[in-house]
Design a protein around this nucleic acid. Sequence first.
DNA 1: ATTGTATGTTAGGAAATGTAACATACAATT
DNA 2: AATTGTATGTTACATTTCCTAACATACAAT
Lengths: 134, 134
Amino acid sequence: MSSSNIRRSMPLFSIGIVMQLTELSARQIRYYEEHQLITPMRTDGNRRLFSLNDIDRLLEIKDLLEQGVNLAGIKKLIIVNETEFVSNKPIQKSEEIRKDLSDGELRKLLKSELLHGGRHRTTLRQGDMSRFFH
Amino acid sequence: MSSSNIRRSMPLFSIGIVMQLTELSARQIRYYEEHQLITPMRTDGNRRLFSLNDIDRLLEIKDLLEQGVNLAGIKKLIIVNETEFVSNKPIQKSEEIRKDLSDGELRKLLKSELLHGGRHRTTLRQGDMSRFFH
DNA sequence: ATTGTATGTTAGGAAATGTAACATACAATT
DNA sequence: AATTGTATGTTACATTTCCTAACATACAAT
């Protein structure tokens, strides 16, 4: 893992700030955690602490939900995304990724994601927190 | 002000996190605020919220204190620093800066700062929070 | 010996966050 | 039409974190 990734996974933000940054309710954020879409750290006193990566993922989740993907689907997509990052060909094209990973129900999920609107952008690959820092 | 500076002045961090990041006590941080070395934002509920710039400044303060400069001196130095940033010659050499600003007791303060060890680095010009982000 | 500076410690209160339970809206299914 | 599942809202109560204010302390300077 690069030092940049270490920094991006540093637990820094309270849930209040994350609510503002993502425009999600505390209920939503906790619900997504409950379903293991994010796993923020905890303080000694059991308060959640979110990293930049967590916030990026929340923005991803929000985006996918708005496109009609349900939590189960998002979960799979996130795993895809992580696998992709761990692999040593991180710059392969999205078409190739889809070919690599389209088996079983995963294929259906990805297809439904593709069918939804022409909004292709960087949703799965990169969060939006970068805009907060240089 | 650049968009990057806007981001760096965004209030994001609770005092607990800032304590960890700076290794300062809450007492110290509040004391520095009391003496107007920092002015963190507040939530509606009156909790302090610190920006990256605030954290950088706290690291600056800590560094200068360790070099023997007192709060009054640090305050002056910080004003110098800000003036420098606002001016339209932000890349002028440190020697020139000193010439520009060495009048009255300020001269003495800067001198004492210079006398202290050969640690010249970037103390006054740039904080260390950049290491937390890319 | 006194004063000033920087920080520690404690007390009491308020805000933010935690979990848990129940409510609701809506889509999908039977 | 009734039921089930999903995502979220709301409320209640407990705990943690943070607030201010006051007093204590160590040390340097006067």
